[in-house]
Write a protein that binds this DNA or RNA. Sequence first.
DNA 1: TGCTAAGCGAGACGGTACGTCCCGTCTTAAT
DNA 2: ATTAAGACGGGACGTACCGTCTCGCTTAGCA
Lengths: 232, 232, 232, 232
Amino acid sequence: MSKAHGSRNGGAPGRPRDAHIDAAVLAATLEVLDEKGYAGLSLEEVAGRAGTSRPTIYRRWAGRAPLVLAAIAARLDVPAPPDSGCTLCDLAESFNVFLAAYRTIRPDVLASLYSDCARDPELRDCFLGTLIEPSRRAVGRTLDQAIARGDLRAETDREQLLDLLGALVHYRALFGREHLTDSEAERAIQTLLRGVAVDYPALVAHSQALELEHAAPHGDHGEHGDHGDRTA
Amino acid sequence: MSKAHGSRNGGAPGRPRDAHIDAAVLAATLEVLDEKGYAGLSLEEVAGRAGTSRPTIYRRWAGRAPLVLAAIAARLDVPAPPDSGCTLCDLAESFNVFLAAYRTIRPDVLASLYSDCARDPELRDCFLGTLIEPSRRAVGRTLDQAIARGDLRAETDREQLLDLLGALVHYRALFGREHLTDSEAERAIQTLLRGVAVDYPALVAHSQALELEHAAPHGDHGEHGDHGDRTA
Amino acid sequence: MSKAHGSRNGGAPGRPRDAHIDAAVLAATLEVLDEKGYAGLSLEEVAGRAGTSRPTIYRRWAGRAPLVLAAIAARLDVPAPPDSGCTLCDLAESFNVFLAAYRTIRPDVLASLYSDCARDPELRDCFLGTLIEPSRRAVGRTLDQAIARGDLRAETDREQLLDLLGALVHYRALFGREHLTDSEAERAIQTLLRGVAVDYPALVAHSQALELEHAAPHGDHGEHGDHGDRTA
Amino acid sequence: MSKAHGSRNGGAPGRPRDAHIDAAVLAATLEVLDEKGYAGLSLEEVAGRAGTSRPTIYRRWAGRAPLVLAAIAARLDVPAPPDSGCTLCDLAESFNVFLAAYRTIRPDVLASLYSDCARDPELRDCFLGTLIEPSRRAVGRTLDQAIARGDLRAETDREQLLDLLGALVHYRALFGREHLTDSEAERAIQTLLRGVAVDYPALVAHSQALELEHAAPHGDHGEHGDHGDRTA
DNA sequence: TGCTAAGCGAGACGGTACGTCCCGTCTTAAT
DNA sequence: ATTAAGACGGGACGTACCGTCTCGCTTAGCA
């Protein structure tokens, strides 16, 4: 049906794999996943929707969990971390990478993946590498910039902070309880920053100044919520 | 096999339930759960080990998830929150309630429960009520005391703080990665407290004073890790 | 609920049985039997429709088969065999007793009873006594009259003939194939009689004479089919 | 375990059926059937004895009834009808085909099949085709020969006679009452033949002549019973 | 151009467990 | 003692998927 050959498939003999099938299967997987969740996903149905057969799927993925992981990973994309010079803004922005990445995943699917990973170290590594690390790394880089800039104390425990932030996202993502909202996320960041910032009020001031600057020309609609500290 | 009747079961008609069966099933459930995890638990096997039959189990619990939830809840017990006057100590102590409650649960089991809850609101309420709320409430009370005492700022967002703490526990409990250790937990508490305390150094001082008091008579082996702030 | 007591129930102590229940259960049994057949009849449903409970049914009948047998037997009634002097007519008439008794029974129910009886001698005796023997006896008496009258040969094997007739009825009753019709039945009787009659043509002649006699006053529309021998 | 392939299975796609399984299941079915009867036969046990699983059985037969039917049919074999020129002998011989076919079937099994067939037309057709028609056809052919030969009256109702004979066999086969014996069967045939033969005494004479002929050389052990008419 | 090796669909394989139904019995409290 | 109610232990049901296998056919690259 297709002619994807470039005369080369690594020198392997025999008929090469049909790349269209991979795509169709991943798409079908996401479709079923969104409709019926993880427990309701049977490879039988995925094969049916993708117009292929079960053995063909098993030839490419080791089972349900790896397939689902691949399907979800394929949909995700993690943009580069920002570096505007404003620690508060950058962190909030960067944190949204975290959030956006999980808001597309059904809670039950995420939880089931966690469960499968707990029993399969190989799968776990893959899970970490494709779903966890990328966004963690992005936020991590933002933290590093803030520390380098002298906004956060030098002895700040980077990993602990990432854990606290990541935990919050996942905790909420795992419950049917609506995912973390943007404003909740920002307030959490504020609480955490107050614990690790060298001079928290200064950070707030800087952020507000920048905001005004941006807002002045076009008029601020305030749709981001402000970074201000209501208690100050 | 036993009689157990007290001539009273609330006036309900029909043969009363045999409480021994409930106990045997819950015990068998925990046994299988610890051996094979959630995915490896079949009601068939539970029934077998409990010396009863599948229908009898279905008569008492609506399915696998409610059964597992009940079994885990039965094993849990949440002690009363402490109130020693030392915010740092109390919080650490109280937080251990959180931790202890989850360290007995296999990560895959917890994750699977999350997954099932995400699709079943009724189950979710039960899950929240039996596995989440009790420990959250315990820590919450400790926070309230600290606020009342004036150790934490009056406008502290109690729920947010609980979320951050709880999230951390669950996040770790869900990964095969070893659960949160006591020292990690303490350091996380410190980070958070620094963000919400009225006078953080004073809290640390108070805690250390108490510790010395206790330690003096027997000699302190330092096995709890100290509450000291390395940055001070 | 009822007060059927006459202050006497044979001196038995305790609460006397409620006769209404027997009737209600038998009626419910017939109802379910007619709707869903033997395999579809559960004592649970019968109890429900009769407004009583399973144990109460078991107290009165030993199980499904005896209950069904009792229900069917209660509906049956076998009238006295005729003795008009006309062997052909009597036999046909008597044979209808056979037929009528079975036309009210669903084939699958009859067959299932046969099956249960094959494994339970006690039930079998009851089955024979209530469903088979009465009609067999009625036809048997007619045969005896015919032999006594000299219409059938003296050495006629009464039992064999009854077997052949009975077999035919049951054979048909057991198949979904419509039960034996009246005209088929009559022709079968003719075939058999020709094998055992002393003077078959004379029997036919007698029968036809009687028929005319009866028919003359009101005009015979021949709706019974005639007993004539097409071959004569 | 075995290969058995002839590279051809009719061009059907997919993995071909393993014929050994069919055989093992049918054998196991007969085994259980003979031991515990129809009601005592569970597909679970059959699967166990055949070394396979329930779903595999359901893949090949639609349920218990079709399976049992297939198992019984596989054991049956209907030999060709005889044509010796002696109507009485042929009929008796042919009738034994009828008998032999049913003497191997437990009454309760036969009855249960009847019951199931009464509710399922498709099954009924299969039942008729495999268990009823073959032997009926064999006897039917013998009757045709007798009519063609002029031994039976031309207007004889072939179907009615077959019904009467078949009914007798089944009637007896359905009761635990011992199956029809050979001598009973012969006497029934005689009764029936007298009703349809052109010249019954001649038939008897012919039969007896043949018997002497056969008996003379080897000496007659009389194991067939004689065809004589005790009443003559 | 033909060989070889893999991919592919189809579908049956042996198997585990599901959730349900109904059995026949037992244990209550109430009549 | 019998009633209605309802749980008991138990056996079997028919179904859904699992992950694997065996086919016959197709497709490509290498010879």
